[in-house]
């Protein structure tokens, strides 16, 4: 079972060791987002969509760097495996970090940049962010998280590229197989692989989401339990 005291100690270790790198990344993102805000407000529509792109790119690239970062080198992997806490505790701390703390922290730079640029340069004439817009970005992040989380444990290095490369490859193969099967069964009928969207969000049944999240988180845990230094 999970020992709360040890888990808190693990959190403390994670942030004591990671905060300087994380702060540096946040500062960089803030600068990057300030420039983008200015360009967007000046030249493009004042929609929040660009923040979605920035946030997701930042969190997924930054996130893959921060998820299970100890697994990337053999020496740090051994050090991490030997810390006297259970596998479940170490996994849970990583999971909570990636699910709750990381996305909220990473949402700060684009939101701050947006607000700062709006007030300082455009005298607040650009509409302020709404909670629905922010919520939408978080949901997008949470949909991507199980994939990258699994990729971080499975691939350990170059996680972003390997994970998305695998997803694209598997997607193409699955699409090809499905299309082939469709034509075999229905002959001349059109194959429609599109996911239907409502208000910009894909409509997926709840059971499919549960399977998706459960599958990748479960697989991540199994892989993490089996991690070796060899």
């Amino acid at each position: 079972m999970i020992n709360l005291q040890r888990s808190l100690l693990l959190f403390q270790v994670k942030y004591d060791l990671g905060h300087s790198r994380f702060s540096r990344n946040l500062a960089l993102l803030l600068g990057f987002n300030l420039i983008l805000s200015y360009m967007w407000f000046n030249y493009i529509d004042n929609d929040f969509a660009w923040i979605a792109i920035c946030l997701n790119a930042a969190v997924t690239i930054g996130g893959e760097y921060l998820f299970f970062s100890d697994l990337k080198q053999k020496s740090s992997l051994v050090h991490s495996l030997m810390v006297p806490a259970s596998i479940t505790e170490k996994f849970t701390v990583e999971w909570l970090n990636s699910m709750l703390l990381l996305p909220f922290l990473a949402l700060l730079p684009p939101a701050l940049a947006y607000a700062a640029m709006n007030l300082a340069v455009f005298d607040g004439n650009v509409p302020h962010l709404t909670s629905a817009q922010v919520w939408l970005q978080l949901k997008w992040y949470w949909v991507v998280q199980p994939l990258l989380f699994f990729g971080a444990v499975y691939f350990r290095k170059f996680v972003f590229f390997k994970t998305w490369g695998s997803v694209i490859l598997l997607g193409l193969v699955t699409f090809g197989v499905l299309m082939g099967m469709w034509h075999l069964v229905f002959e001349h009928a059109m194959f429609d692989p599109r996911i239907h969207f409502t208000d910009g969000q894909p409509v997926l049944p709840a059971w499919l989401l549960i399977i998706y999240f459960g599958f990748f988180w479960g697989l991540s845990f199994i892989c993490y339990r089996e991690v070796e230094a060899g």
């Binding site: 004591d16 060791l17 300087s20 080198q73 053999k74 020496s75 740090s76 051994v78 050090h79």
Partner: peptide, 9 residues
């Protein structure tokens, strides 16, 4: 281990 690892702290 033979190959030491100490974090940057």
């Amino acid at each position: 281990p033979e190959e030491t690892y100490l974090p940057n702290t």
